[in-house]
């Protein structure tokens, strides 16, 4: 931004309120990055589920224990929870304006995403290694 050399406003006053100079687009960027990753991973996820239709319990486990299927599913879970946590944070910030309630919702969102993610990852790994 061009500054008027005769301005008496301090540098800080000029940039204040304009947003971050460095990491402000990080969430936007991660949302896109995970979104892009999720396109092929979602197709793989649906493919894996469809391949299990009509199979019995042991066959299903064997399908999931296949390294390619397991890795694709693990990547789907990882990118999915990161993506959904950012997305839900945006939704919370859009609709909840009371400071306390907003912070509580943001904490619950972070805990939910991490919990769901780790339980799902653990379950897939257990199926693979037992």
């Amino acid at each position: 931004m061009a500054r008027n050399p005769q301005s008496m406003r301090s540098s800080l006053a000029v940039v204040r309120g304009l947003g971050s100079a460095r990491s402000g687009t990080s969430e936007f960027w991660h949302q896109r990055l995970t979104g892009i990753a999720l396109v092929p991973l979602t197709i793989a996820f649906v493919w894996i589920i469809v391949s299990m239709i009509g199979k019995d319990y042991n066959t299903m486990r064997r399908i999931l224990a296949n390294p390619l299927a397991a890795i694709l599913l693990l990547l789907f879970i990882l990118s999915g929870i990161h993506h959904m946590q950012i997305g839900m944070r945006v939704i919370i910030e859009d609709y909840i304006h009371r400071e306390g309630a907003k912070i509580a919702a943001l904490i619950a969102n972070a805990f939910f995403a991490v919990l769901v993610g780790f339980v799902a990852l653990f379950a897939v790994l257990k199926i693979c290694f037992s």
Binding site: Y57, R61, M88, V116, A123
Partner: peptide, 27 residues
């Protein structure tokens, strides 16, 4: 749909945990 998928991850977790537990849980 984004919010619905968010809630839907609970179903995904149920499916995977049941599969990782035993045939009864999966049933």
């Amino acid at each position: 749909t984004g919010a619905a998928l968010y809630a839907g991850t609970l179903l995904l977790v149920w499916w995977l945990v049941a599969l990782a537990t035993d045939a009864g849980a999966y049933e």
